[in-house]
Design a protein around this nucleic acid. Sequence first.
DNA 1: CAGCTGACAGATGTTGAAATCTGTCAGCTG
DNA 2: CAGCTGACAGATTTCAACATCTGTCAGCTG
Lengths: 198, 198
Amino acid sequence: MATETLTAERILAATEDVLRLYGPAKATVVDVARALGVSHGSVYRHFRTKAALREAVTKRWLDRTTRELSRIVADRSRSAEDRLASWNVALFTAKRKKAGADPQLFATYEVLLRENSGVVDEHITELVGQLVQIVQDGVAAGDFTPVEGNVEATARAVFDATIRFHDPVYAAEWSKPGIEAEMDALLALLVNGLKRRP
Amino acid sequence: MATETLTAERILAATEDVLRLYGPAKATVVDVARALGVSHGSVYRHFRTKAALREAVTKRWLDRTTRELSRIVADRSRSAEDRLASWNVALFTAKRKKAGADPQLFATYEVLLRENSGVVDEHITELVGQLVQIVQDGVAAGDFTPVEGNVEATARAVFDATIRFHDPVYAAEWSKPGIEAEMDALLALLVNGLKRRP
DNA sequence: CAGCTGACAGATGTTGAAATCTGTCAGCTG
DNA sequence: CAGCTGACAGATTTCAACATCTGTCAGCTG
């Protein structure tokens, strides 16, 4: 335990700790190095710049969510309609939990997301990809009709429509009473719009 | 012309000019007074504080949009489906035009909107109210079925769903090619969800 | 000799004194 | 005398000197 090898993962974990402690404005590479008991030069051996380090922390944080949601996508035993709603509720619940459990850290990640829009774009692409799979399954099962016959555009439309329930910009509204009813109404409207007409 | 009486409206117009010129951070009450050729004490006769002045400017700006849209709401000669799409397209087009025509001023208003969330909330309430009227008309005509039988909740859901196309937060995406197609897909999905099933 | 250290130059952030602004009001003016 | 002015106190912002941080690299160490 005295001198575990310095890995990227250990640095990332320490960086998250330091960010939680000092916030995004004051967390420095020197702080991270101190937390690990090494010199800051060693951190630069694993991450070319401070920006790259912060980007990696951001990606790590977003990937945890993507991984969780992928389980819902993969569960073919449930209907597409069911999974579509579950997926959206799970995404909302996960984000709201993060925002509520440690507002300090969540605010920090809001800053990181803004400065790493490339990582966010990739994350969104992955999420829309998951929705594509669910919609595709629904179409194959004869439950859904994609808008304009375009599954990609339809999945993207569903994602856009629920943006209020997953974009951290709106985090302040997530604790409002009645927010769940609002989401339910929106999901009902969307599912109704997707359903094949007899 | 030499000495027109100092009205609230003249002050508001001058304030907008000063904001356009200096930006939200540097525009001062003294600047506004100078633009009007009066002392800053006179401005304080009409607006209790600088914050109240900025709030009034913000409200004036938002009200211009509300007024334009009300013409679509009132036009009973068109179907609810038609007006719903028109209303959303008009809102999007108006905002996008403002953002594109004078990005400087639009950025300034983004700041004002953030510091006057109360005014924004009222504005949103008015807009949702307009949507309620359109949805109500559609239900009365037998074209729409409101989600959960609740017209208010349905109108709110439509508003939330299109947030990406009217919240200035996303202004950067409004000039992306293909954005109109994305809005069309979303509107088609929503209208489909609203339509009464035979 | 792979991996780490720490001194260093330039970039970025902090700090506090000086400058400007906000909001008030007694008195001036048309 | 209604409406405006401008001097003023306290609040806020600006600016420049100072402190800290980022990123590099020659050399140390296990």
